[in-house]
Nucleic acid binder design. Structure first.
Lengths: 245, 245
DNA sequence: CGACGCGTTGACCTCGATCAATTAGCGTGG
DNA sequence: CCACGCTAATTGATCGAGGTCAACGCGTCG
């Protein structure tokens, strides 16, 4: 199983000073293991913790009054989540494990202290968050303005890229760790229609499926139909380098 | 015309020290006036600036390959935008003035410097950003999972609350500074359907319209049908207070 | 074996899109 | 003051993407 720390993630965008590395190492908080399906945070729970997913896979979502669910984000090793705790006393979203997972919890005061001492880390964190925001706006545009087919294609590409970034070896294909209902809740569709769109993408030759595995056969056309951009890969922190502590 | 600085906005959540006030005052950047319709930033433009809207009203949006538009956010005086510059060399979104407006531009290096010197401001900025993220997830859930009627109701409530926060006196009603097409591009609907939903809300007695003015006649029912939450009003930074510089 | 969750498929329906036409508001020039 | 032209709002008719409902297959687990 792939394991990633937050230091690994930040280090991927910025070369860290020893002092910064130590700060991040010292931050490694309370570890907690979660079984598949276990709920880490429930919407409106009182919470003061942020966390980094160390291994496994999780998702965050909100529930609407009629019981329907909108999945906001899939989490992979190295991802920071729960940052809502910086602004709210209670969580604006629920977080649940999609696979057996391990998380590292940090109290927001710890996070604040590290940010105060290491401005460059604070800025890197902010920048990564901005990239996630951009990814979210892409999803917003997808839900508001694109076809069911495009949304499914986008989900597939997004998960593939996030798996890769988290250290998984994803060559041509990967095992989709989601039910079609979950894909639907992420893309604003019903499970039934997700099924039809997967079939359609398959018939068009853009993907192939065998068992639980998905192969992105024609990434170029897939990315084009999805309007997809890998926001995390475009991060440019070069302007930040000349500002050491 | 209402004018708001970023200091006003942050000060609304946190009592600032003199040093912090000075830092924000010193940050007030290059002012720039924009006519209604003027484009401040275009998607993929090279940019290193963030900005605060001082007066007027703007919006950010992205364009899809087929030419359709998704409005991401409406900006009111005091709102910070362009934070994508912290992560990217080119803007992930376009920003345009919806009314004659004035903005204050800051280079990201300036912003970084202030954040480095004033950790509490950095955290407050981060927290406000988290609140905007929460608002965006609400919109995501709205687009993915709610009816056209609910989305329109949400847009109306959102704009009302943002106007209020920016200092506008919004009693029972306000002048909607948007075309129905813009409301549609914000909510993932067509202008035609926006029109029908406005009429429907009117017939249901939830809103009233006279000329360009909208009156939210039954806020309670409106909020219920919209699944609406005012994220900015729930920010709780009390935990931050005990960490002075 | 039976219950259950998930995937798959078909039949049908609805919400919102699309197409089209009309009306209202408003600034401009005569 | 009025004719014109443009943009936005409004309304009706029709279409279609995606939802809903229902049935069935298949694998897993107790």
């Amino acid at each position: 199983m792939r394991v990633r720390s937050f230091a690994d993630r930040i280090g991927g965008f910025l070369s860290l000073t020893v002092s910064e590395q130590n700060a991040l190492a010292g931050l490694e908080g309370r570890a907690r293991s979660l079984r598949r399906g276990a709920v880490l945070v429930r919407e409106n729970d009182r919470t003061a913790d942020l966390f980094v997913l160390s291994s496994g896979m999780m998702m965050s979502y909100v529930l609407l009054h009629d019981g329907s669910r909108q999945i906001l984000r899939f989490l992979f090793p190295g991802d920071l989540a729960g940052a809502g705790a910086l602004a709210y006393a209670t969580s604006p979203e629920s977080v649940v494990a999609l696979a057996d997972s391990v998380v590292c919890l940090f109290d927001r005061a710890q996070v604040a202290a590290v940010m105060a001492r290491h401005p460059r880390l604070a800025l890197a964190m902010t920048a990564i968050d901005q990239a996630e925001r951009a990814a979210m706006t892409d999803r917003l545009a997808g839900l508001g303005r694109t076809s069911a087919q495009a949304r499914i294609a986008a989900v597939l590409l997004d998960i593939r890229d996030r798996m890769r970034r988290s250290g998984e070896e994803v060559a041509s294909g990967f095992t989709l760790p989601l039910t079609q209902e979950e894909i639907g809740d992420a893309s604003g569709l019903t499970a039934v229609h997700v099924n039809r769109m997967l079939r359609q993408l398959e018939e068009m030759g853009l993907i192939a499926r065998t068992g639980g595995r998905v192969i992105l056969s024609d990434e170029v056309r897939l990315a084009r139909t999805a309007n997809y951009v890998d926001r995390l890969s475009r991060i440019d922190l070069s302007w930040l380098v000349p500002i050491p502590a």
